Simulated assay, not measured.
Amino acid sequence: MTAESTEIISYLEPSIADDYRNWDDSASWLLGYSFLPLALGLDRLPDTRLLDLGCGPGEVTRWLADRCNARITAVDTSPTMIALADEHAPHERVEYRLSEDGRLSFLADGEMDSAMACFLFTCVDGEDQIREIITEVARVVRPGGRFTILVPNPDQVSGAVFEGFKRGEDGARYEPGELMPVEVQRTDGSWTTIKNRYWNRDTYRTALAKAGFEGPVKELAPVLADTEGVADPALRGDRAWERERTAAPFLLLTATR
């Protein structure tokens, strides 16, 4: 496993946004995205209005629109990502929108039934920014609506190796907001190294509470056995999934407005 480059990840840079589509996201699909309908309760909400914050190139957005018959407003701050989504993941029930200032000014108060943010906050520099983003989500989600945050599991760092990626340096410990190297495999077998911000559970829980999301925050930390009846069996492929049998690479945090 060798790293090609090291840089603070920014999907505003066209080269990084383009390269993102070549990353091996097998683990994200099997143990992350597949659990979004469960966390959000989308199967019980036909024709739901869903906000996808930080939609990237739109593959997950399009899948959810089909899987859950959702009407989705998908938002990103990267013009390149929105262009990729429009080109490669168009859908009649999806509207892709560019947010130039991180605000959702094109959405009214309480307009959305639910919202999600997948791997967004590892690219956010400060806790104040995280709170501002979540407060804006709280504004546009109706009372009783859910907000699910899908993040790398904060317990799995210090050189944790999963299928397709490695998080952190061996033996290192990270404080909230600290930059952490992540080695990512591409679909062609090559590797690249990026840097993400490390945030712990308390960061998200505090921001959710301050924004007005009430009640306990529910957690899902799926391991391989949990995928039975949830994820498409084909997603397992022919990979070993050794660490994923006992350690959850991702965490889904869900709060109710």
Rank of each mutant, 00 (worst) to 15 (best):
G145E: 05
G145P: 14
G145I: 07
R146M: 03
F147L: 03
F147A: 00
I149H: 03
I149C: 04
I149T: 00
L150Q: 00
V151N: 03
V151K: 03
N153P: 07
N153E: 02
N153R: 02
P154S: 02
D155M: 04
Q156T: 10
Q156W: 06
Q156G: 06
Q156N: 04
V157L: 11
V157R: 09
G159V: 04
A160W: 02
A160M: 01
V161L: 15
F162D: 09
E163S: 07
E163C: 12
E163H: 10
G164A: 12
G164W: 13
G164M: 14
F165N: 02
F165V: 01
R167H: 08
R167W: 11
G168V: 12
G168M: 13
D170E: 12
A172T: 02
Y174L: 03
Y174D: 01
E175V: 08
P176R: 00
G177A: 02
E178A: 15
L179N: 08
P181S: 02
E183H: 07
V184M: 14
Q185A: 15
Q185W: 14
R186E: 09
R186I: 10
T187S: 10
G189V: 11
G189A: 04
S190I: 09
S190C: 10
S190V: 13
S190L: 13
S190N: 11
W191F: 15
T193H: 09
I194H: 13
N196G: 06
N196P: 14
R197N: 06
R197F: 12
W199D: 06
W199M: 06
R201W: 10
R201T: 05
D202C: 04
T203W: 07
Y204F: 12
Y204T: 00
T206G: 05
A209S: 12
A209D: 14
K210T: 15
G212I: 01
G212C: 07
F213L: 03
F213Y: 02
E214P: 11
E214L: 13
E214G: 11
E214Q: 07
G215T: 04
G215D: 06
V217K: 01
V217N: 00
K218C: 08
